[in-house]
Design a protein around this nucleic acid. Structure first.
Lengths: 183, 183
DNA sequence: CACGAAAGTCAACAGCCGTTGGCATATGCT
DNA sequence: AGCATATGCCAACGGCTGTTGACTTTCGTG
């Protein structure tokens, strides 16, 4: 069972990495600091993950896990979606890591675009009355803007919101973006 | 006229700095690269601005210049505001510099919060039916989310939008955040 | 117990970074 | 012209970065 120990430290590194990347962003989070948090030698980080960039790639793997909304009443879709997103964002650091980093790191931005294109857009496409890509894009602006103001920029009025309040305000916007007829 | 020349290079540095900061973010934009863009020695950058941080502070000075909307018909406030923001964001690099950097740099985030609190919130407060801080916060989530998806993450459906389309979609959301009764 | 591989330590590398001080040059004033 | 000062270049510093290779310890297995 020589591998048991190694998997534990591997997980420790990953946890520390997510914390540091999430708090400081990619550039300012140093391998040495991550190693210190995980109480191991910086060399081990490289040994386990090959490079800082590969470590980040693994630390920022994120599945948004959008539920199937196809048999949810049309007027509840927005609320269900918003609640799912907020829950999902707050139960892991991963998304925050990705969002924070995506602003200054092109590969993280690309990953963000991929999540949008492969996870969010297809699901929303079945709920939009027309122009699915455009409507998914609009939904993304509101969803990510909320995440930005709440978790990254930490605007006081936005951080002060409860999850319920957030859902109540954002849901109608999402619904409108998916269904409002184009003028 | 010894100062004329210096002011020209000072401006050149500032321009190059805004470009680099805007493209790469604070950490990855090096003093050396900025100096190279301005066709000048790295030492001059420090001589003129004292430090990289002070250079950034000056490069990221941004006045959102929100117009007086107090005598605009209530149903046009959203459109006017959105159009102003998009115009303002696109006529300078400054805002993009700030937004990109705010994700990983605490002092830039603080500046963002200040712009929100001292420039946006007070104006919106006079337009909101109640709970001015909360409503201004909601407006910010939609406005900044749009900027994030369009200028930073560059989601294709969002970059594809014309200014007119953006206004048409976002304006009703803004109006609703300012006026919709709380349930 | 002995052996070998896995896990971890340590020191050092080369390469950037922001910043500094000294020195050349140009420019404007008297 | 000659001086003072502003402007600019150059080389170098100390510090931090990701990454590497050699060495030591740990530990499961024959």
């Amino acid at each position: 069972m020589a591998e048991r120990k190694s998997e534990r430290t591997r997980a420790a590194i990953l946890t520390a990495a997510r914390e540091r990347f999430g708090a400081d962003g990619y550039e300012r989070a140093t391998v040495r600091a991550i190693a210190a948090d995980a109480a191991i030698d910086p060399a081990m980080v490289i040994r386990y993950f090959g490079s800082k960039e590969k470590l980040f790639a693994e630390a920022a793997e994120f599945d948004i896990r959008i539920p199937d909304l196809s048999d949810v009443p049309a007027d509840e879709v927005g609320a269900r979606l918003v609640r799912h997103l907020v829950t999902r964002w707050e139960e892991e650091d991963t998304f925050r890591v990705l969002l924070r980093t995506a602003a200054t790191n092109e590969s993280a931005a690309e990953r963000m675009r991929q999540i949008f294109a492969s996870q969010l857009a297809p699901t929303l496409a079945r709920l939009a009355v027309d122009q699915p890509a455009l409507r998914a894009g609009l939904v993304a602006t509101q969803a990510l803007g909320f995440a930005l103001c709440r978790y990254i920029l930490q605007f006081p009025p936005v951080t002060a919101l409860s999850a319920d309040q957030a859902v109540a305000f954002l849901a109608p916007t999402i619904t409108r973006y998916l269904t409002e007829p184009l003028s």
